[in-house]
Design a protein around this nucleic acid. Structure first.
Length: 482
RNA sequence: GCUCCCUUCGUCUAGCGGCCCAGGACGUCGCCCUCUCACGGCGAAAACACCGGUUCGAGUCCGGUAGGGAGCGCCA
């Protein structure tokens, strides 16, 4: 805790998100980015982005674009241009040279076969150290001809390496269990372990917040920092997100790109709220505005156990944010979402100013019935469906012969409503029910079926009002007799 | 196998030795509201993994057991 306070007092907080562009930005990565972003924004710090693209074979432009898009959609803007790790290879080599001349690193000529042998031996003997250090103190003159060496860290043999992790607490490794890791490959390219340390240092990163899967790496990286005489950033290793079954996230459940969640109709603010509460809590508070999050977020309150993904809770949160969003904004969100939907073209093609106005007018009734934007679009279908309206099976069942004649009376009474309004329509519908000696529901349900093709919808008087007199009467006429 | 980490309702969690026969939220179930479905309101069922210690007192501290996870590459 002390070092953190000292650093905060002298320098600004710098966090970073450092994904490797070998696939989409998944939900766990999104949360890691969110935590880094929140931590920096809450402390007037900087949030940097670094693309770890040193694996040339697996890094793709599409994946880089997906990371940018995903972060942007989530609303996590980063400071400065993104750093591409591969572009810094020369700097990484320079640092290794420095370590070589200071005696903190050495050339190792062990062959792949030797390495395998060592590994098998170590495993058989139940030791954790895989490399036996055979070139550590050997005379370079012994180097076999024609072999390109790797460069290894001359790690301490005794003592312990300790990480004061902000989430996991104090974690200790015995140095005798940590072997001399490779810093530079025989082809002259830096390893991940080295590149991360050099980049974080050069970028001025003060706080490393990342997934739990890096916790063991932290020990080895600390050894590199110490060999270099650099100060070690504050570390916070956050637990991973698991699937609903408690197992590691796989393609089957949540390991979808963040893009997939957008296409499912989730709002970025709901996503942020959900993600932040997965493993972090602030008393009993469930709903947070972005400003509240920035103010309240802290590393100390992050839990240590992995959390399971629960889409039902995300749905609930999303419904909350949909309900509280302004009607026009909701329609704007729908417009932005349509290009990302496989069947978004139908509505997109019809979305003229008149329909847009209808959508906005219908939003108060629609938004409290939808958990996602996709549901919202679907439940608004009656507004943009062509006549004659297609009835689903349950709606068809409501259109009995008796219902048809009720619809007939309704058509006549509604035709006299002037001016057209929800209140006027309501009076007419109630009058028909009373006159026919049936309950309101007996009239309202067939009416709903005729107007929307469904058995559920917003309040039927609002539906009448939004649809307008002419369209309402026309749809009624399609189903009525008499 | 080795190293490291984790363990409160089905799920996310509050709890930092007495305020806890454990609180909130989602989900589930019931009731109310009601033209349907929702929303909203009210209520219910539902958890401290296990075993030992420390202590006047443990969900909270310590040890062990069991279960789960991550990492162990010239991948990142």
């Amino acid at each position: 805790m002390r070092p953190e306070i000292a650093i905060a007092a002298m320098t600004e907080i710098v966090t970073r998100f450092a994904p490797s562009p070998t696939g989409f930005l998944h939900i766990g990565g999104g949360r890691t980015a969110l935590f880094n972003w929140l931590y920096a924004r809450g402390r007037a710090g900087k949030f940097l982005l670094r693309i770890e693209d040193t694996d040339r074979a697996r890094s793709t432009e599409e994946a880089i674009a997906a990371i940018f898009d995903g972060l942007t959609w989530l609303g996590l803007e980063w400071d400065g241009g993104p750093v591409h790790q591969f572009a810094r290879a020369a700097r990484h080599r320079e640092v290794v040279e420095q370590m070589l001349s200071s005696g903190n690193a050495y050339r190792c000529y062990a062959s792949a076969e030797e390495l395998t042998e060592m590994r098998e031996k170590a495993r058989a003997e139940g030791r954790s150290k895989l490399y036996d250090g055979r070139w550590r103190d050997r005379d370079p003159a012994d180097a076999p001809a024609g072999v390109q060496p790797v460069i290894r860290l001359k790690a301490p043999l005794t003592g312990e390496t300790v990480i004061e992790d902000q989430v996991q607490g104090r974690v200790t490794w015995q140095n005798e269990n940590l072997d001399d890791l490779v810093l530079l490959r025989s082809d002259g390219n830096p390893t991940y372990m080295l590149a991360v340390v050099v980049d974080d240092h050069d970028m001025g990163v003060t706080h490393i917040i990342r997934g739990d899967d890096h916790l063991t790496n932290a020990a080895r990286q600390k050894q590199i920092y110490e060999a270099l005489g650099w100060s070690v950033p504050v570390m916070a290793h956050i637990p991973l997100i698991h699937g609903p079954d408690g197992a590691k996230l796989s393609k089957r459940h949540g390991a979808l790109g963040i893009e997939a969640y957008r296409a499912m109709g989730y709002l970025p603010e709901a996503m942020r709220n959900y993600l932040v509460r997965l493993g972090w809590a602030h008393g009993d508070q469930e709903i947070f505005s972005t400003d509240e999050l920035i103010k309240a977020f802290d590393l100390a309150a992050i839990g240590r156990a992995p959390a399971r993904l629960d889409l039902a809770k995300l749905d609930n949160l999303n419904g909350h944010y949909i309900r509280q969003m302004a009607d026009q904004d909701l329609v704007t969100e729908i417009e932005k979402l349509l290009p990302h939907l496989p069947n978004g073209a139908e509505l997109a093609g019809k979305l003229n100013p008149a329909l847009r106005a209808k959508l906005i007018a219908a939003m108060p009734g629609l938004k409290e019935r939808a958990k996602t934007l996709v549901e919202l679009i679907e439940s608004a279908r009656f507004l943009y469906a062509d006549r004659p309206i297609l009835l689903d099976d349950k709606a068809k069942a409501l259109i009995t012969p008796e219902a048809r004649s009720l619809l007939g009376s309704l058509t006549r009474d509604l035709a006299m409503v002037d001016p057209w309004s929800a209140q006027g329509a309501e009076a007419a519908v109630r009058a028909v029910a009373e006159r026919s000696g049936v309950k309101l529901g007996a009239v309202a349900q067939p009416l709903r079926a005729a107007l929307t093709g469904r058995t559920t919808s917003p309040g039927i008087f609002d539906v009448l009002a939004v649809l307008g007199k002419a369209e309402s009467l026309a749809r009624l006429g399609d189903q009525a007799i008499g």
